[in-house]
Each structure stands twice: as C-alpha cells, then as structure tokens.
Simulated assay, not measured.
Amino acid sequence: MEINDSSWEDFILVGFSEYPKAEFIISLFVTGFYTMTLAGNMAIILVSILDSQLHTPMYFFLRNLSFLDISFTTCIVPQMLVNIWSGHKTISYVGCIVQYSVALALGSIECVLLAVMAVDRYVAVIWPLRYATVMHQRICHLLAATSWLSGFANSLFQSSLAIILPLCGHHHVDHFFCEVLVIVNLSCVDTGPTESKMLIARLLITVIPVYIILTSYACIAGTVVRIPSAEGRQKAFGTCASHLMVVLLFYGTVMFMYLQPKNNYSQNQGKILALVYTIVAPTMNPLIYTLRNKDVKRAMRKVIWKDLVKDS
C-alpha cells in the first residue's frame, strides 16, 4: 500500500492560538523572561571569565550551563514570538527538524551536565583538600565534553527515528514549538515501536543522571551531618544549595512531562510545563546562583565598579 506523504510541507504551530487574548499576554511574559535569561546568563559567563577567582571547576560548569540556557531558549523563543506577533504560524519542514533536534540535544546535555555538577559538589564536600587535584582542568573538560557528546548522540538517535516516520499530510503541530514527541504523534503509521525506543533513550538520559545526583547528594548529606560545627555544616550546604534548587526545577518539570503515562497527559498541560522548562527555568538559574552565591555577587560588584571607574 502506497502512503501519500507530504512531509516537505510547512508545519503549522498551533501554540495558544485558540486563546488569542491569553496568547498576547503569554508573548509579553515570554519576552520578559527571555530578556532576563539572556542578561542573567551572559552576566554569569562574563563575570566568571573576567574574575580570576572564579576560574574554578564549579564556575567552568556554570558557564556551560549558562551557555546551554541561552542556546536552548534562543532555539525556541524567537520563532514562537514571530509566529504570535506576525499571525503566521508556519515553520518550514527543515526548520522544524532543526528545532526539535537542537532543542532535544540541548535539553539532554543539561540532564548530563547537572549530574556532572553534582559530582563536582561531591568532590568539593567529601574531599575538600584533594578537590583541586581531582577536578583538574583536563578532567573538567572531559566531563563537559561527555555531557555535550551524550546529549547530541541522544538527539541524533531520537531525531532519526522521528524523521523517517510518514506524516501523510498531518502538519498542524499542537504546540508552540516543534517538539519531537508531538511530531511523532502526527504520523499516520503505528508509532508504538518508535515511541518505545525513544522512551528507553529518555530513561537513559534522565534516570542515570538522576541516580548520580541522588547518590552524590546522599553522600554529601552523610558527610555534612557529621561536621561538628554549625558554621561548617552551613558552609558545606551552601556550596550545594544553588545547584540542588536548579536540579529540582529542571528535573521536576522534565520528568513529570516526559515520563508520565500517556493517558494522564493533556496537550494543554504539556504546553504549560514546556513554558516552565524552556522559558522559566533558564531565567531562574542565574537568579538562583547570584542571589545565593556570595562569590558571584562579589565578582559582579567588582566588575561593575571597574566599569564605573573607567567611565568616570
């Protein structure tokens, strides 16, 4: 039987178009958060590069996280805003593939990178005297490269499964961006085997990092409670609190969205959760790290003061 496929047609991103007034309000909300995401994460990258005291493994990984957040939101938000404000909800077939492939890769990288950052905090708390020796520059670069390579490998695997599925003229995407599972659901053939393979890939890229994070923090908690002084316990906890808050925000939404049974999932619910992990979470990361981190706040004041002195 020959399938009449028209895969090369443009996709229609439905987004929140069934609620026109809400869509405009959402666009203002998204614009504000996107601006804060760019400003906050670029500030962290610049400050951690310019201040030599922040040339440590923790801030090396934080720069990677900030760059990821900028890239992830930029992959999605500009297209979303153009579609809302222009009234044309289309995205090209190639553009859709690029968007869901890149978004999937960057999201996967963040899953692994957060686990790497947990390991970094584990070494800092458990072996503070050996921290500089264990987390030397070559190891940091290797761990960062592992995060990036594993994320792109996961995206390549899942995206290749999605690309080969025939769409048979189904091009109305009930989302505000091309998300790989939504595109898979447009197919006119049985997607069960494909979705099963994707589920295994999602489990590997989320469950293994979560296990590493939980194990790291279990060991950290066991060490912290044995510290005799309250000041020492507070200092040890302070080195991990910001990262733990980012982990809870990111993984809480991602796992709730991608690992729950299909019959408990509504598309509107998925759009709201997607707004949280694609737009809100990248904005909160720099706020969490700057508000709770004395080193970053000190470095920012130092850099700003230098600029003011130069200007005067």
Rank of each mutant, 00 (worst) to 15 (best):
G232L: 02
Y265H: 15
S150W: 15
Y211F: 11
V14Q: 02
A39C: 11
P282G: 01
R301W: 12
F237N: 11
I44V: 15
D10T: 03
V224C: 03
S17H: 04
G232W: 11
I212H: 07
P228W: 02
G232F: 04
K297I: 12
F16V: 02
S150K: 03
A103T: 10
K271I: 14
T74R: 00
I213V: 10
G151Y: 01
I183M: 14
I44K: 08
N293W: 07
Q53W: 09
A162T: 15
M117F: 04
V102Y: 05
A274G: 15
P228D: 05
F152Y: 13
T73N: 02
R121H: 08
P166F: 00
T31V: 03
C96E: 10
I272G: 13
T215F: 13
S108E: 01
T283Q: 00
A162Q: 03
V112Q: 01
L165I: 04
C178P: 06
A115K: 00
F67R: 12
S242K: 00
I208N: 04
L204E: 00
N83Q: 13
Y93K: 06
Q158A: 08
M257K: 12
V180W: 08
V173L: 15
A153F: 09
R138F: 12
S17V: 03
V225C: 13
I227P: 02
T146N: 09
P57R: 00
F177C: 02
V134L: 13
F33T: 02
N83W: 06
I45A: 02
H55S: 09
H88K: 14
T290P: 09
C168P: 00
Q99G: 07
V309D: 07
K302A: 07
G238K: 11
L113K: 08
L50E: 10
S17R: 09
L249E: 12
A124Q: 15
S48W: 05
L275Q: 00
Q267K: 14
S52R: 14
E110L: 08
C178N: 04
Q234A: 14
S6A: 02
I97T: 08
V189S: 13
S66N: 11
L199A: 08
L186H: 08
V309S: 09
I163M: 06
S86G: 12
L156R: 10
L149V: 14
S216A: 13
E110M: 05
T56E: 01
M58I: 12
S7Q: 04
I45R: 04
Q137Y: 13
F67L: 12
A281S: 04
I49W: 15
V303S: 02
P128L: 13
L149N: 00
G252S: 11
R130L: 10
L81T: 10
S229Y: 06
L186W: 08
Y211G: 09
